[in-house]
Write a protein that binds this DNA or RNA. Sequence first.
DNA 1: TTGGTTACTTACTTATTAGTAAGTATATTT
DNA 2: AAATATACTTACTAATAAGTAAGTAACCAA
Lengths: 186, 186
Amino acid sequence: MSITREKIMELGETLIRTKGYNAFSYQDISSELGIKNAAIHYYFPSKENLGTSIVRTNIQRFEEMLENMHSRGFDEWQQLETFIKIYIKSHREQKLCIVGSLGPDFNTLNETTKTELVRMTEIILKWLADILTKGRDKKLFFFKEDPQNKAVVIFSSLVASLQLTRIIDRLDYKNIYQSITENLKP
Amino acid sequence: MSITREKIMELGETLIRTKGYNAFSYQDISSELGIKNAAIHYYFPSKENLGTSIVRTNIQRFEEMLENMHSRGFDEWQQLETFIKIYIKSHREQKLCIVGSLGPDFNTLNETTKTELVRMTEIILKWLADILTKGRDKKLFFFKEDPQNKAVVIFSSLVASLQLTRIIDRLDYKNIYQSITENLKP
DNA sequence: TTGGTTACTTACTTATTAGTAAGTATATTT
DNA sequence: AAATATACTTACTAATAAGTAAGTAACCAA
C-alpha cells in the first residue's frame, strides 16, 4: 500500500481524535504532509471515504488485538487490562478514542461512516459483555448487574474519562482507571 | 430580556447538543427562527459569545437546581437521582449534555468558552464528590474508592452513555442508569 | 418635535470548505 | 519504442462560513 495513503489516514485519525470530525479539513492534512489537497482526494475522493476507512482500520486493529490476546491465552482480567491500557495510552497522547470523538458527531456523519461506527461500538460492547460473563462464571469478576449493562457502564467510563481529563487535566487518570475495575473485585 | 435573544440561545444549545459546536452555523439558527444572520450577530457578535453564554446559562441552571434541592432538604440519594433524571430527560430528547458535546471539541473552542466549560465541569464534579463523601459518612452510600475518582467515574458513565445510546439506540438506558448507582448500595 | 435607543434588515466581504477537471512526470508493462 | 498506470500538481469552482457597515422602522424620552 502507498505510504502517502497511510500517512493521510494516520494524520486523519489524529485530527479526528484531537479536533473532531467537523473541525478538521483536507487542508490540515495537505499542509502538514507537504502535498496538495487534490492528492488527498486522489486516495479518498470524499471526506466520507477517509472517515469510513479510518473507522474500518480501527475495527481491524481491535480484532487483531483480540486474536492476539486469544492466541496468548489471556484470561479475562488480562484482557480487560489490555483494553484499558489502550485508554491510558490515548490519555498520554492527549487523544480521545474513535468512538468518543465520532459519537458526539454521529448525526452529522454520512451513512457509511455511521454504519462502521455502529459496527465498531457493537463489537467492543459484545466483547466486553462476553468477558464479563465468562470472568464472572470463572469467579474472576464479582458483580450483580447484567453483564451487557455493566459493559456499557465500563465502556462509557473509559470513553468519557478521556473527554473529562481533557477539560480538567489535573485529574488523576490512573486512579480513575483503577476505580473502574475496583468493583469487579470481591 | 429579549425573546429573540432567548430563542437564539435555546436553539443554539439544541444544535450544540445534537450536531456539535463545529457543525452548526448562524444560518441554521436564522433560517429556523425566520430572521437574518446579522440579527444573531446583533445579540452575539461572534459564535464565541453565543457558545460562552450557553455554557454560562447551563452553569446557572445547575446552581439553581442545587439551591432548589437544598431548600427542599433532599438527602444524598435524592440529589443523585435528581441529577440522573437530567440525563434520562436528555436521552429522551436525543440530546447529549453540554459537557459531553463540547468536551470532544475542547481544543477547537476559544479561551472564554473553554474557561466556562472547565468551570462547569469542576462545579459538577465537586458537587458529586461532596454528596458521595457526605452520603458515605451518613451510611447512605457504600464504596471503597476515593470519592473524587468515584465522582469522575459516575459522571463519565452518564456523559458517555448518552453518546453510546445515540450510536446504538437499542441499549436499555434505564437499566444502564440503574447499573451506575447499583454499586453504591450495600 | 427632535434625538436617541432598540431591534433588526440589506447587502456585502473575506476566508475556508469539499470537490473536480485537466495536465504532467515517473515508472511499469507490452 | 509505445502505451498504460501510478501518483501526484495546477488551477479552478461552488457552497458555505463568520463577520461587518450602513440603512431603516418603531418606539420612547426630553
